[in-house]
Amino acid sequence: MRKAVVDTHVCVACGCCMKVCPRKAITIPKGICAEIDQKLCVGCGLCAKECPASVITLEVCEK
């Protein structure tokens, strides 16, 4: 299964990803960068499409 992963170094913390995630898996703790709850993410890729900085990728992960 694939999950969304944020390149935190270049994330601008704008929150576009957060707004589109159907699972509400994304938060931006303390305004620094987006954080994805891997347990909630279903790998739909909506956030990656929306991210204006294109810093979200979908990575294959175990289990």
Partner: peptide
């Protein structure tokens, strides 16, 4: 992308810097 402005928006950059400074650079 639609909200590309947010990538280089000075207010966005500044508030992120403030948040970084206030909270340490790792969430």
């Amino acid at each position: 992308k639609p909200r590309s402005w947010c990538v280089y928006c000075p207010m966005g950059t500044m508030t992120q810097l403030v948040c970084r400074a206030r909270n340490g650079s790792s969430p």
